[in-house]
């Protein structure tokens, strides 16, 4: 990307957030290099508090908590990022089609989207997981559908505004066809706000994934997920509080980092400033 984006991360808070995110992403990618195995039980090592051998302690089966958090990052991130990517792709297609074709199709999409918008995301996700069945695929689809409305609405609004712009009329008057106008002018112009909103939604998706995991509907044991780990730790909150505290912190810090970095991105990608240009 270009220069103003980098500028946003020169300030300490956005820079720290970005650094944390890079660490979590690296952990997710390189999870196989973690110090222990995430699924080998060693009951003699159970309930160890944080120490030099186990930096974040061990859980009720003697598994290293740091290792499980790192593998949990892989689960949480892959599920939420994939879900949001699916959601953005489908939402943009649907929103653009609604704005482009108008008429009954637009009304149908708008009504459906407004309906799903009025339900809490967790409810939609729970219903879908109930239909598809628990596990990573189910969670992924559930999260994707839960956020579909947001991206559909945003894209539709963007395209509707852009459709009336002079440069669209200009392109048409120079012989551009529908496909060209849609793919080269309308969608690229609508992309920036959708991507920023997708980044912020990824934070929400991580929470939703953790919530579903907490209810036991996410990744199934022994594959670790942050929500699942919190769920296991909730019964042991007085005996071994670190088992619930560290996954909870992971979710909280990661989501806060995403939001702060996202805010910095919004400020740097001020699309209106770009449109105004120098006078």
């Amino acid at each position: 990307m270009n220069f103003p984006v980098m500028k946003a991360f020169r300030h300490p808070i956005p820079a720290l957030s970005a650094l944390w995110l890079v660490l979590v992403i690296l952990a997710a990618i390189l999870a196989d290099l973690s110090p222990y195995d995430y699924d080998i039980q060693a009951l003699s090592e159970a309930y160890r508090s944080p120490s030099a051998a186990h930096w974040l302690g061990t859980d009720e089966f003697g598994r290293d908590l740091l290792t499980r958090l790192i593998h949990g990052a892989r689960t949480s991130l892959s599920v939420s990022v994939t879900a949001i990517a699916i959601s953005v792709a489908c939402g943009m297609a649907l929103g653009a089609a609604a704005a482009w074709f108008g008429g009954w199709f637009d009304r149908a999409v708008t009504v459906t989207v407004d309906l799903t918008w009025s339900f809490p995301e967790i409810l939609i996700a729970l219903i879908l997981v109930a239909i598809i069945g628990p596990g990573t695929t189910g969670t992924m689809v559930a999260i994707a559908v839960a956020y579909l409305a947001q991206f559909t609405r945003l894209t539709r609004a963007q395209i509707l505004t852009l459709k009336g712009e002079t440069f669209i009329e200009a392109a048409r008057s120079l012989g551009a066809g529908n496909t060209h106008i849609l793919t080269r002018h309308l969608l690229p112009n609508a992309l920036a706000p959708v991507l920023v909103s997708a980044m912020l939604a990824t934070g929400d998706a991580i929470i939703l994934e953790a919530t579903l995991g907490f209810f036991g509907l996410g990744a199934q044991p022994p594959v670790p997920s942050w929500g699942g780990m919190m769920s296991a730790g909730s019964a042991l909150i007085f005996k071994a509080p670190w088992i619930i505290i560290f996954p909870g912190l992971m979710v909280a810090v990661t989501v806060v980092a995403i939001n702060l970095a996202g805010d910095a991105l919004v400020a740097s990608l001020d699309i209106k400033a770009k449109l105004r240009g120098p006078i």
């Binding site: 002079t166 440069f167 002018h185 920036a192 449109l275």
Partner: peptide, 16 residues
């Protein structure tokens, strides 16, 4: 037929 539109400020696609 070439067309030159009224307002050059908005006649160009800002992201291209």
């Amino acid at each position: 037929i070439g067309f030159v539109s009224q307002n050059p400020m908005t006649a160009l696609d800002p992201v291209t």
